[in-house]
Design a protein around this nucleic acid. Sequence first.
DNA 1: TGAGTGGTGTTCAAACTTGACTACCGAGTT
DNA 2: AACTCGGTAGTCAAGTTTGAACACCACTCA
Lengths: 208, 208
Amino acid sequence: MHGGVAMSATRLLVLGAVRASGRAHGYQVRRELLSWGAEQWASVKPGSIYHALRQLLKSGMLRSAGVEESGEGPERTLFELTESGEEEFVRLLSKALSDASAKPEFFGAGITFLTCQPRERAVGLLRFRLAGLEREQGSLRSMLEDGAVPAAKPEHVWELFRSWIVAGDAAVSFTRELIERLENGAYTMAGEGGAAFGERGWMSSAQG
Amino acid sequence: MHGGVAMSATRLLVLGAVRASGRAHGYQVRRELLSWGAEQWASVKPGSIYHALRQLLKSGMLRSAGVEESGEGPERTLFELTESGEEEFVRLLSKALSDASAKPEFFGAGITFLTCQPRERAVGLLRFRLAGLEREQGSLRSMLEDGAVPAAKPEHVWELFRSWIVAGDAAVSFTRELIERLENGAYTMAGEGGAAFGERGWMSSAQG
DNA sequence: TGAGTGGTGTTCAAACTTGACTACCGAGTT
DNA sequence: AACTCGGTAGTCAAGTTTGAACACCACTCA
């Protein structure tokens, strides 16, 4: 129980960005997330990023690795993953991809790092998620049919249920299709020769 | 600018629950939200409810209206809406139903209080939302076609875009259909004779 | 009788998010 | 030369959420 139980999108994104860079300071992480579009779909604000970094440092997921060489402006502290940081990353990534009730941003973060793991594992996690989603959809549908909303006072709250069902169906088919694509060999996953996006040191090898 | 700019689902739900009750203490609000299923789809925890009450009190949206008569246990402070509370409720409700980029829980809270306003107004707000959703969908689609993700590093992040598009389509058709149902006279809205769910004093008239 | 269980009603600390703000630097421009 | 503008890098206070804990009561059930 030493620390990381929180499952927020920010945590995963920040951890993953540091991991992909190998070693990074706050602003680098921020730019990285920006370039992935993460500031739009999750809405990760600068403040949250710096907070997450301090937090991850404090709980031993990150260690500080000196300050940047070039220039002498404000302290640009560099961070890198520790071993428990790596474990936490794997834990969060698994949760994000497998938990049917995870929030969309968290799932989104999971997808971002989809290729940081072996293909088999990714498919397994997504299958788990699919099963969960289908279970949820089933129970929503049977509620609608039985007319058994918990203490169904307001008639029009059915609307809400209908909307969850529609959204859920979309999630199910999306997950199903993604699994299929992965099984047909889409994308370069971790350990498949090519440089998989987000892998450790990906920034250094694939980019400048 | 006096106070309420935050647009959280909790705020709207708590305000609406007090409004519907006419006068309520924390636990009543909590039970009310529970009975609407709000603790599931939004995930409103007790702590947040009490916090929201204190906050709304502090900023003048609620006033305290004595303590409950029966029993003498802990202080069961009663709250009721002030005029600016009423304004805030309308403001939040409008935002929740009209803003295309509102979070799902916030929209859900809006739907819960859908019938607290005249039919025309509800339809207008939802139409506005529909337009926003369609605009968003359009720009997402053109991004996919142009291949112009902001700085499209990771190939598989397209997956994410695909998933937003699918979810967005679902939201569009849901909103469209809801508007249609409303135009065909579904549900009893505020000011239409029958007791509309969630209206002021609804708890006292429609329930015990 | 006393041991647990479940509901009522609330508080609290710790974590997290948010938006605004600071401060510096270099490029252009008026 | 002074001025603005945008990018870099980060802090801060205020608000919000979360999970757990507290305290008290009524009930059962052995």
